[in-house]
Design a protein around this nucleic acid. Structure first.
Length: 280
DNA sequence: CGTGTCACCTGACAGC
DNA sequence: TGCTGTCAGGTGACAC
């Protein structure tokens, strides 16, 4: 489900819905979701009585400030949150429920059960390598062409598709937006990182910022099941140029969009606008 | 270090 | 109808 724009949309919803609420107690019906601490009972004890005082995001991670802790939540493929009244029937695939003192509940649902929660000392992410080693935040004003260039120059080899999926390179891109960014940059997904020209680095920077910021504005892409904290779909799926558009004409040149498999991930591109040699 | 494969799960869908 | 195989927005472990 979620890449940066979807997680940011969820974050905004949660910030409005649960900031200031006090957790009375927590119910966990699928212990696997809770990674830290390793004892689920301890997880529940630590959260009882705490107030949610912030909802932030880093890359694809949601960061809830709860008393002396940060609750780090990763939705992986299909995790989603919703605010319910206590008397609302609990839907299938609900695995964690935060019961608030006002009678409402924040529920975490996850069909594929891939999502994770880690409760760590506030701001201390050293025990979470995936979060700790995250690359620059692409919608931060500090993410300049210079920053992107230095990230690119760190790489000795590799294909563009793999580079953009690497969360230590730039945080928050996933399979949808990587394909969209490569299309807008006119780069073939198998182009070699080391072959990037200065001009291509600049185009890449512009494409990353453009695609992600447009998607955040539209509330993300709803491809299958994604909805925000209010249960609403996003609007970015209607603006995707190549993802999921195989065998339809490229909006720029009319060539049929192709779908292949690179690094095990479905990869969509226009063979004309994104030639293998990567000139233009 | 890079890359390919698999595993973690369930559900949707195509094809037989 | 039902079976089988494939695929899905992510990441981490593992083998070369």
């Amino acid at each position: 489900m979620p890449e940066l724009p979807e997680v940011e949309t969820v974050r905004r919803g949660l910030a409005a819905l649960v900031t200031g609420k006090i957790i009375d107690h927590v119910t966990v019906t699928l212990g696997r979701i809770i990674r830290t601490p390793d004892d689920v009972e301890r997880f529940k004890m630590m959260l009882a009585g705490q107030r949610i005082d912030s909802v932030d995001r880093r890359g694809k991670y949601l960061l809830l400030g709860v008393g002396p802790y940060t609750l780090v939540s990763h939705l992986r493929m299909e995790g989603r949150y919703g605010l319910y009244r206590g008397e609302d029937p609990v839907e299938i695939h609900t695995h964690v429920i935060f019961h608030f003192t006002d009678g409402t509940e924040l529920r975490y649902k996850d069909v594929r059960q891939f999502g994770t929660m880690d409760l760590v000392p506030r701001g201390d992410f050293t025990a979470l390598p995936g979060l700790h080693a995250l690359g620059p935040e692409p919608l931060d004003e500090l993410f300049t062409v210079d920053v992107l260039r230095s990230q690119v120059r760190k790489k000795r080899s590799g294909k563009m598709k793999m580079l953009l999926l690497d969360q230590t390179f730039v945080a928050g891109l996933g399979n949808i937006y990587v394909d969209e960014v490569l299309y807008l940059s006119r780069l073939h997904p198998e182009a070699q990182v080391t072959d990037l020209t200065e001009k291509q680095v600049q185009r890449l920077h512009g494409a990353i910022v453009d695609v992600l910021s447009r998607s955040v504005e539209l509330g993300g892409s709803s491809i299958k099941s994604y909805v925000n904290g209010y249960g609403q779909e996003g609007g970015m799926q209607h603006q995707l140029r190549v993802y999921g558009m195989e065998n339809t004409p490229c909006p720029a040149c009319g060539t049929l969009i192709e779908k292949t498999r690179i690094g095990g991930r479905g990869t969509h591109f226009c063979p004309t606008c994104q030639p293998p040699q990567g000139r233009a």
